[in-house]
Design a binder for these strands. Sequence first.
DNA 1: TTTTTTGCAAACAGTTTGCAGCACA
DNA 2: TGTGCTGCAAACTGTTTGCAAAAAA
Lengths: 181, 181
Amino acid sequence: MAQGSIQGSLKERGVRLTRQRQILLDLIDKSGSHLDAERLFQLAQEQDPKINRVTVYRTLKMLKTGGLVDELDLMHHEGDQHYYETRLKQEHAHVICLRCGKVEEFFGEPLSRLRKQVETHLGYQVLIARTEIGGYCAHCQTLRAREFDELRGRPPEPPKTSEETERKPRAAAPKPRARRA
Amino acid sequence: MAQGSIQGSLKERGVRLTRQRQILLDLIDKSGSHLDAERLFQLAQEQDPKINRVTVYRTLKMLKTGGLVDELDLMHHEGDQHYYETRLKQEHAHVICLRCGKVEEFFGEPLSRLRKQVETHLGYQVLIARTEIGGYCAHCQTLRAREFDELRGRPPEPPKTSEETERKPRAAAPKPRARRA
DNA sequence: TTTTTTGCAAACAGTTTGCAGCACA
DNA sequence: TGTGCTGCAAACTGTTTGCAAAAAA
């Protein structure tokens, strides 16, 4: 438990540090990033099998409202879940490959420049800034070119924006979740 | 029906121009921007009371997949819907006031610079870029200061990131929608 | 006339809520 | 020891799907 920034911040606000929250904060903090609620729930379950999905959602909501984590959707590349990452890192954009799903982070001055311009030109007090960029990574560009070559003869495809790879199955396991009656 | 860009693009791809699609395209195009599916559905219903919500979703999905509209979430400021706008405009960021919900657009070179850097530095072929910025507009900043003054004496509030205004009712009408059995 | 597209009902994913009991401070 | 938090079940919103009937081309 090396990290104390989030936990400290919570303690200051009089938020109780329950066992469940400890687990969740730990996971959020040590995971590189980009966990969605369901994944976080699965990981938490490994440490406490009785933890409830609702607790995960409630904790995430609290952290988000408190400005301690940011919510991303990563271009909805593999579903409509949201992803979360701590706010500790430097501002960055997320770059998502629409073919293989890889997510990279981009740090650079255009981001801070953008923020400053919005503050000065529009007079805003900026609290959150989120940039998500979708495209094809270098590797997938060549793969796409190859796939295209193999189609020679057929009518050229309309320039699809995404969705051109068959949607891969959601996650490792088919995610069987309690269904409604 | 002055605009033909989207409609033309669709015709080329062999998409049928049905009455419903005409209506929806028209609305998307002439509305300033930032319609969500439900709002679009309501507006469409004024012209064709028998149009179905599902048709709206299907049309939006088609336009999105075809790269003709962009999907936004505007920081989820008033719910988890998605908003849509045509791709005809120049690239821009959306700046959302987290207090009053106002949405402004920001055009500026940091955006194209950012795109270029991602292309050259990370080797991506960029297809979509989305920047959403949340904060307080000039007007709401002063209002917040006033609100804060009125609270003098009480313990200083934790620096809330959003959600500090009471969530306003979703839209004009309470949006009564067919509930599940 | 063939192929898309629609409308309907029902399903689905992701997330939130009400409430009684539990546990942190 | 009280107030905040959890777990459970069930609700809810936003969106998608299967299928027969309707309408473009």
